[in-house]
Write a protein that binds this DNA or RNA. Structure first.
Lengths: 248, 248
DNA sequence: CACAATACCTTATGCCGTAAGGAGTTTCAC
DNA sequence: GTGAAACTCCTTACGGCATAAGGTATTGTG
């Protein structure tokens, strides 16, 4: 019974992603005027996800925010999965191309990384979106293009370039994830890092008395008291980036 | 009405994570013998997740695999969230500590990274598990300890060590994610990388004729024909790792 | 005006996690 | 030996989810 709709889908998805840029946009315009737009839906969905995470993102919640039912959204967007793809791409629109300062490509790479990280932290749900295949929307594409432009003066061979770009993305995503987790843990549990750690440490001491014998290096490392979890993640990111750039 | 159960939870979660190691294990043993064990449930859940992903992981599915109902699992595990934590930690048990070859710490780091990546690829759902706060189960802890042991001869200061470790995790996770996505896309859509790319490229040519003008560097990079998406991700990982280690 | 196309709604299906409470089984205290 | 307690496992039910199906109202075209 399933009419093998898998074929027509990428066409529609791509058309949605590149809407406004794509050429066809023929307005047929019979029937009632659309009260919504894809953009409005995507924006509303992003707001919902920012507020309540990807778990709190339901078609009902998005519809409600727009004064519509969940089902009405399906006029504009084929499935929730596609809506998330659109949100993902749209969120990347916040990242501007780095200002051209042709002398120092390392500085440009650093500023790009910082901006991307900021974007991830503004929309932590981005880090949970799992793609099968890259999305290839216009804004995500622009982000890729802009890091390539920043790295252009370094004159890397294609394989090396790919490696550096992919490592940069990994580093930014990884650090953003750490920071986002530190934040969300602090707000959802309502405890400070300190409190959480002391509780956890007490429990561990009871449950696993020989922890220090089993994991001496871990203990030694965490003995350097981490007062601010988020700041530690930030520092680790900066240092990691510096190491990577030194290695290029 | 909610009796503020948030307090007692970490205790129970930790006790579950460190079961077998923890001291208390007092068998009360009134009532019928348990037909299941936490380990069996965790193993079954891992199998389900390996087969159907985290989306396909439902309490009903896990119960069914064990010939029980979904509700019976709640005797052993407080919520699905905790079950996933247990799965996460258990999956890390597959990683063995690197053989000691004291001369070459870089080689040890590389082998550690390779093993971790293999683990992520065997259980791609690991990459979707988002923690608030680190899990701190025994096996994950052992993985951390083993990379610290590998890096010990490098004699890094604490901050630098933290940066390197966190960068390594990011790199491994990021590359594993790319590879896993390449694989899943290939299997779920049933097309080869080649087919998928040509279809996509044709659609893009129709929708966005000036793509090459907008994103010249992206086009130039992808012109180097990628025949095998997974292999490209693998190469990028190795090169990225080499760059990072060179930077240390 | 009639008709086609469209937007939006209500309803229904089949999933999900899990709360509530009942039935059967085993052990302990007496 | 006999309750009572403790325990496992089950059935049922609730509210929420994405979305399929189909109805109704609104708009433009002939």
């Amino acid at each position: 019974m399933v009419l093998y709709a898998g074929q027509g889908d990428p066409q529609r998805t791509l058309a949605l992603l590149w809407r406004g840029i794509a050429a066809d946009s023929a307005r047929t315009s019979r029937g009632p005027k659309p009260a919504l737009t894809v953009d409005a839906i995507v924006d509303a969905a992003i707001t919902v996800a920012d507020e309540s995470g990807l778990d709190g993102l339901s078609m009902r919640a998005v519809g409600e925010r727009l004064g519509r039912t969940a089902m009405s959204l399906y006029t504009y967007v084929p499935t929730k999965r596609e809506l998330i793809d659109l949100m993902y791409d749209q969120a990347h629109a916040e990242i501007s191309a780095p200002a051209r300062s042709p002398g120092d490509w390392r500085a440009e790479v650093e500023s790009w990384a910082g901006e991307l990280q900021t974007c991830y932290l503004r929309h932590p749900w981005l880090l949970q979106v799992s793609h099968a295949r890259p999305v290839l929307g216009p804004h995500e594409q622009a982000v890729l293009e802009s890091i390539l432009r920043a790295l252009d003066p370094a004159g890397l061979p294609p394989a090396g370039l790919r490696a550096v770009v992919s490592s940069l993305f990994s580093l930014v995503r990884g650090s953003a994830r750490s920071i986002a987790e530190a934040r969300s843990a602090a707000t959802t549990t309502g405890t400070t890092d300190q409190e959480w750690w002391t509780t956890r440490a007490r429990l561990m001491r009871e449950l696993v008395p020989d922890f220090a014998d089993r994991f001496p290096l871990s203990v030694r490392l965490s003995c350097e008291q981490v007062t601010d979890w988020e700041q530690a993640a930030r520092d680790a990111f900066c240092d990691g980036l510096a190491i990577l750039l030194k290695g290029v």
